[in-house]
Simulated assay, not measured.
Amino acid sequence: MAHPAPILVTGAAGFVGQAVASRLLARGEQVIGLDNFNAYYDVALKEARVAQVAADPRFTMVRGDVADAGLVAGLVAEHGIRRIAHLAAQAGVRYSIDHPLTYGHANLQGHLSVLEAARHAPGGCAHLVYASSSSVYGDRPLTGQGFREDDPCVAPVSLYAATKRSCELMSQSYATLYGLPQSGLRFFTVYGPWGRPDMAYFGFTRKILAGETIDVFGEGRMARDFTFIDDIVDGVVGVLDRPPQAGGHRLLNIGDNQPVGLMEMIAALEAELGVRAARRMLPMQPGDVTATFADISAIQQLTGYRPQVRLAEGLKRFVLWYRDYHGIAAPAAVA
């Protein structure tokens, strides 16, 4: 399904951005990647991700700030870009407590920068797909019903969540005013190889292998709809290929539809690592939510999206990658 015009992927050195760029390249697309390689977490990991695709002649990496409206507009105009996967953002719920202005710049200004570039695309924007977050749903109890896209999203418990909901509202205004076709994807706890070190499963792995105590927030009562990176990419690319009609703006959950308790995740990780973790049980941190649970019927109906990788298998793949990336030998097999 390759097209002659390149696709702009913002956040191309990030976890999801690089994985999406890689998938697009694999099917013959040209990709312009944009990322500022900020130091929120280990920049060497971002460089290593990009190195996986840098040799492909159809890939161009641009180092710059997505909030630089002139830069983004220039890229769209110069390369005749008509499709955008806007995956750049300042991530992290807890980080937003202490660094609020960073979120205003990267998330709000960055999103507006992309909207303006798409609005003025010389050939017209065929589709803008952007990353939102399950955090927009606020803190809700876990029931047998998944979070639905038409559920109220009026009580964010973190600034990060507030910026993501704000981006959705900005996108709706641009769809209404300018007929800009858009799809906002509400991601649910993405994990897997090449993932973000600030995520719990990643930090737990590092500490468990180092013999350190892990901090278990919410007294272990939290649950997350863990979604493997390959499944996320299936959804992102599937949606990108199916733009709404001009003026259409839709919001879609992209998750696993199988929430897992935090203690169950830790047990699965311990089993894979072959090590029992020392645990320190702590209360929930400001900005955290109790549970996430994606109703994925809308994206399924649109694209046929079906998550394939269950948590135990996904953690196995992550641990294999983690050991390889850090040069950590696997434990000897028991005779």
Rank of each mutant, 00 (worst) to 15 (best):
W321N: 08
K164Q: 07
L302P: 00
Y322W: 15
L177W: 15
L251T: 11
G144D: 02
R83K: 12
L101M: 14
L269N: 02
K316V: 01
S113R: 02
G274C: 06
S135Q: 14
A246W: 13
E212L: 10
V237K: 05
V275K: 13
F204C: 06
D198F: 12
Y178A: 10
L169D: 11
G304N: 04
S135M: 14
F37E: 04
H326D: 04
S173D: 14
F217A: 02
A106Y: 13
F204G: 00
V309D: 00
S158C: 03
V62G: 10
L315K: 00
R310G: 09
R279P: 00
S158T: 02
G110Y: 05
A67L: 10
F147S: 12
N38C: 08
A5Y: 09
G92S: 10
G218C: 08
V50N: 05
L315C: 05
D139N: 11
E47V: 08
G235E: 02
L209R: 06
H326G: 00
P181M: 08
L128A: 06
D295P: 03
S134E: 13
Q145L: 15
W321Q: 09
V334I: 13
C125I: 04
L25Y: 05
T10L: 01
D35M: 07
W321T: 01
R242S: 08
A13M: 08
L185S: 09
M1C: 10
Y191K: 00
M222H: 15
A77E: 08
A155N: 13
A106K: 11
A312N: 13
A268W: 14
R58G: 02
A155H: 14
L142H: 03
D56H: 15
S132R: 04
R306F: 01
V233I: 01
A298P: 00
L315N: 01
R279V: 00
E116P: 04
V62T: 09
F59G: 01
S173R: 15
P259I: 02
S183A: 13
F188Q: 07
T176K: 15
D56L: 13
H120R: 15
T303V: 09
C167G: 14
A294C: 03
V260L: 15
L311F: 09
N36W: 09
R306P: 02
A294V: 00
L282Y: 09
G104R: 11
Q301M: 14
I299Q: 04
D65C: 04
E270F: 06
F228G: 01
R306T: 07
L252P: 02
S166D: 13
Y41D: 11
F293Y: 15
V66S: 10
P156T: 07
T143Y: 10
M199H: 14
